[in-house]
């Protein structure tokens, strides 16, 4: 009982801190916090796919797809912000389900390679369709909420809160059982009645939706992007490392990983240019070799059946 009450106090404190943070800090920290929250969304979204044993590089593609769809509909079709986000999400759902079906039988590394190829094809398409996307010159949108960082913070915190709710649901419902079973063996899971196709597609689609939302937020927040930035593999990699290092298959892990790594990154960025990506590489290697369960570890006991 004691352990639980402590946990709830910590969660409540974190939530309160998250809400009041922009009001007690300056612009620089607000900006940093916004990016951290965006990465937390991405890290969680990557973890959603990982839970169904999908090592996906597709979230890079969906991040870019979200960014470009919402920017283009906002600019060229004069959609209001919420509608441009909605269209981006809808398009993402369609693409994710199509890609999911196409790669249904691919497992492990084969799926990873295919998802990487998908992201890179999207990059080339963005570069090669300058009439729509602005090509290599990129695309610019007016600043979000007139540049009021507090509102931006509120929006991304809202998106993260949604992702956390989804994640908690996945962790505590029948999804958790299905995912755990599929991670050991999809065949055995299916013989025991798990509709593996459905769970695989839903985890992949959920992952895509939140990557897309992060991307759509990103472009409006930074007001400009180019294909090499929106489809930059480094963004995907960073969120992957955050999830792995924080602890896979959990809600706290990816969020914690995002916070820790973003702080390290910011420190590194100031001290050694380029250095922070080296750190990401090293942390990924070290994490896999020495800390396979991440910072939080897999705490099966918290979940289902208790």
């Amino acid at each position: 009982m004691k352990k639980y009450s402590l946990k709830y106090i910590l969660v409540a404190a974190a939530a309160i801190l998250a809400v009041i943070f922009p009001f007690i800090t300056g612009e620089y920290y607000r900006h940093l916090a916004i990016l951290t929250l965006m990465y937390a969304v991405l890290a969680l979204s990557w973890d959603f796919a990982a839970r169904a044993e999908l090592v996906s590089f597709a979230h890079t593609g969906f991040f870019g797809l979200g960014a470009y769809t919402s920017a283009v509909t906002f600019l060229k079709l004069d959609f209001p912000l919420y509608l441009s986000f909605t269209v981006a999400v809808l398009l993402t759902i369609v693409v994710a389900i199509a890609l999911g079906y196409l790669t249904l039988r691919l497992s492990g590394i084969y799926f990873a390679i295919a998802s990487l190829a998908f992201s890179e094809v999207l990059l080339v398409v963005a570069l090669q369709l300058p009439k729509v996307t602005g090509g290599a010159m990129g695309i610019s949108v007016p600043s979000l909420f007139g540049g009021m960082r507090v509102y931006c913070y509120g929006l991304i915190l809202g998106i993260l809160a949604l992702a956390v709710v989804v994640s908690l649901y996945l962790e505590r419902s029948h999804f958790h059982l299905a995912f755990s079973a599929m991670r050991t063996s999809p065949s055995v899971a299916s013989v025991l009645g798990v509709n593996t196709v459905r769970y695989r597609l839903s985890s992949f689609t959920l992952s895509a939706i939140f990557s897309c939302l992060a991307g759509a937020f990103y472009v409006h927040y930074t007001t400009t992007t180019i294909p090499y930035e929106a489809f930059n593999l480094n963004i995907g990699v960073a969120s992957m490392v955050m999830a792995v290092l924080g602890g896979l298959y959990s809600t706290v892990g990816p969020v914690l990983g995002a916070i820790v790594l973003k702080i390290i990154e910011e420190y590194m960025r100031v001290t050694i240019p380029y250095g922070y990506m080296i750190i990401y590489g090293l942390l990924l290697v070290a994490g896999i070799l020495f800390l396979p369960k991440g910072l939080v570890g897999v705490q099966n006991k918290w979940k289902f059946l208790k």
Partner: peptide
């Protein structure tokens, strides 16, 4: 496989 992929990918980024 997941660990192999992430490990070699980490090495790749590092290098």
């Amino acid at each position: 496989e997941l660990n192999q992929l992430l490990l070699t990918f980490g090495i790749s980024i590092f290098l």
